[in-house]
Simulated assay, not measured.
Amino acid sequence: MNHSIDTAHGHWDIFCTVIDNYGDIGVTWRLAKQLTHDFGIQVTLWVDCLASFHCILPQLDPGALTQQHDGVTIEHWQTPFIQTWQPGNVLIEAFACELPNEIKAQWPALPDKPLWINLDYLSAEQWVDDCHGLPSLLPNGQVRYFFFPGFSAKSGGLICEHDLFKQQHHWLNNATLQHEWLHRLGFEHLGTKVADATYISVFSYPSQALTALSHLWQQGSNPIHLLIPFGQSLESLKWMLADNDTDFIIGHSYQASMLHVHVLPMTIQEDFDKLLWYCDINIVRGEDSFLRAQWAKKPFIWHIYPQQEAAHLDKLTAFMAHYCQPLACETAEIWQALCLAFNQDDTDASQHYWPLLQEHIVEMNQHAKKWPQQALNEGDLATRLVNFVKKG
């Protein structure tokens, strides 16, 4: 069957189960918006947990069964599956989530079956190129295609809106827009950066390495400003709280010698992007934030989601090897050692490699600015998905 579509009238369904609060829904929400805005596709996003989704889309009504935002229809995926599903051109099963049994049951009788795509997690590992785009024949005769995002021309590519870097350039050169953003976050006083200070965003999992680095930053000779959305990262900084404080408070700033911590509210994705653009270095977690840190064109540390038997370290190592190809050997070794130390909670190594990286920060900045063009390989994920569907 030819599944080629008229992108102006196509209808796609994306199914997503929420894992780790924001990671999976963050990726699928960006993809749904881009397919809608850049390609004119009618997208229905099926999500099982609207409460977590609400944190990155405050306009969302967690109690609504059906709603529309940014041109995307959002359905609350409940069990049992109570809505009526109208098959479209494409059905995307995001990150190995299982389709509702009700859809599986009606699938064999569909006269025009959608192209069924299993969108997997992003990886720079070599096997991705070999597995991307392969069909999988299920016992009942159904065919599902595997789509692997990645960094090579043979992979499924990376999520990146077509006008993202144009927006970024405009924002970074417009002081008024930056002031408006800081005002929304409640931190207008950060609009004038201290000349010798370093501004670091932190969106990580709890980390002993982060605690160790915070003590190092406290004792430094120049100010360090941490901009931290309220969440798990702050658990690693509780040593800064006074005895009568039970937790950090959104909108408040805290200081310990040269270390300044600013607690931001959780915010929409567009404002999170601006946080990454604004800071000098970004510490990020998961997949969505990891990719947005690369598009920010700034040095970063990726706190990858931990997996059993340290499988995540293989994924981290594969990416670092890919990312470091253009770097001088010494710079690459230092950055990789710091990232590994952070992910292995090696407190001594984290404190050792951080100042060494600062000695190479000019090269890291130059590389970060050039990296997006190299990583995209002239094709973002949404574009490659659309082309895959057109080829049928």
Rank of each mutant, 00 (worst) to 15 (best):
A51D: 10
H215S: 03
G71D: 04
T331W: 03
G40K: 06
W302D: 06
L99W: 04
S253D: 08
V27F: 11
G23L: 03
E333M: 11
A318H: 09
H54S: 09
L327N: 07
P139E: 14
L381G: 10
A153R: 03
N2V: 10
N244A: 13
I249F: 06
F39Y: 15
L115P: 06
S201E: 09
E161D: 15
L316H: 10
T198K: 03
N2C: 07
K104S: 08
Q168L: 10
N343M: 01
P58V: 05
A8S: 15
S136K: 06
A124W: 04
I25T: 06
H360C: 10
W217F: 15
T44Q: 08
Q358N: 07
I92L: 12
A368D: 08
L60C: 14
V389S: 07
K104T: 06
T211G: 06
Q106S: 11
Q208P: 00
I334A: 07
Q294G: 01
P223W: 05
D346H: 07
E102D: 13
L110V: 08
L327M: 15
D346A: 12
C97N: 13
W46Y: 07
P58Y: 03
Q308V: 12
H352Q: 15
K166S: 13
H170D: 13
F81H: 02
I19W: 12
Q366L: 14
H189E: 14
R30L: 11
I361K: 08
Q358G: 01
F203P: 00
F146N: 13
T73W: 01
L381R: 03
Q351F: 00
D6Y: 04
A64L: 08
L60T: 05
S289W: 00
Q344K: 15
I41R: 03
V194W: 02
N343Y: 02
V90Q: 01
S350K: 01
G191P: 02
D130W: 12
V72T: 07
H352R: 13
P108C: 08
D288Y: 04
Y254W: 02
N101M: 06
